[in-house]
């Protein structure tokens, strides 16, 4: 049986936290470059250019792209034939986040209680979602989530009769209301089906899918294309100051649901859409 040491997990997670907050992923960079060349608004073009310049500064000086280095969301696939040699997986993942945020000079943005609001001072706890899978690998995906965009996300339990049109309408209204605050051009993750929490989880996971990849189901891919075009016709533009690039990508995930329901969740990310994945 393959075994893995907690130190390896801690160090890897720490590195991933710093990497995600300092370097932009390739799919996001390419998409922002395309947006810059297609932008019709003078303000919008200037703003996109500033965003691209900022990535260069962050990379060169290894400082965070954005001061809001997020609350860490983690998707962990744990191979059922794998053993953690010397401690708890959850503790190791959380310790990795604390180490990364301390050593990387990342902002600690987590408060211990939503009402009392005292900072935990190490950016833990992270929100961790586990999946047990066949094999002996440990796959970790981290998405440090800023709250400028998280706050503009929404969930609604639609009726089956609302159908595709109802889903489209809800997504577009959510984007319209949130984009100026969410640091547009945004990325939109949508989860349709399942139960309330399943829809929300799919919406979050959808943000981590590369922007060039479409949903394999034809009718869902068509919905993604429709939403991308419709949202970009809203005119909101980069930072909400007008333009043709409001949304960089729409990723939709679906899941079987109940005969009486049509849950839909929309999770919004800013244009940085930090996500890093590694396999141990």
């Amino acid at each position: 049986m393959k075994t893995i040491q907690t130190k390896k997990i801690i160090d890897t997670v720490a590195e991933m936290c710093i990497e995600a907050n300092t370097f932009l992923s390739e799919d996001m960079l390419e998409s922002l470059r395309t947006a810059e060349s297609s932008e019709e608004s003078e303000n919008g073009k200037e703003i996109l250019k500033t965003m691209l310049d900022n990535f260069e500064v962050a990379k060169r000086r290894t400082i965070p792209i954005c001061q809001d280095t997020g609350m860490v969301v983690m998707f962990v696939s744990f191979g059922q034939d794998l053993m953690i040699a010397d401690g708890s997986l959850e503790d190791a993942l959380q310790a990795g986040v604390a180490k990364g945020y301390e050593e990387g000079y990342l902002r600690k943005s987590v408060v211990a209680d939503p009402f009392i609001r005292t900072n935990t001072n190490n950016n833990t706890p992270a929100v961790i979602h586990y999946k047990v899978v066949p094999g002996d690998q440990l796959k970790i995906k981290i998405l440090p989530k800023g709250f400028g965009s998280e706050n503009t996300s929404a969930l609604k339990m639609l009726k089956p009769s609302d159908g595709m049109a109802g889903v489209r309408d809800f997504v577009i209204k959510t984007v319209e209301a949130g984009s100026p605050n969410a640091c547009a051009p945004i990325v939109v993750g949508v989860g349709v089906g399942g139960t309330m929490e399943k829809a929300a989880l799919m919406a979050k996971e959808a943000l981590g899918r590369p922007l060039w990849m479409r949903n394999p189901l034809d009718h869902v891919a068509a919905l993604e294309d429709y939403l991308l075009e419709a949202c970009n016709n809203l005119g909101i533009g980069p930072m909400g100051l007008g333009g043709v690039n409001t949304v960089l990508g729409v990723n939709v995930e679906v899941f079987p649901t109940h005969i009486a329901g049509l849950p839909v969740a929309v999770n919004i990310s800013c244009y940085v859409n930090r996500h890093v994945e590694r396999e141990l």
Binding site: I47, T50, M51, D53, N54, V57, A58, R61, I63, P64, I65, C66, Q67, D68, G148, C183, M239, L241, C270, Y271, V272
Partner: peptide, 13 residues
């Protein structure tokens, strides 16, 4: 005044 969100590294300078 609005400035570019997320451009934290650039504005720091």
């Amino acid at each position: 005044f609005g400035c570019v969100g997320g451009a934290g590294a650039l504005l720091q300078s």
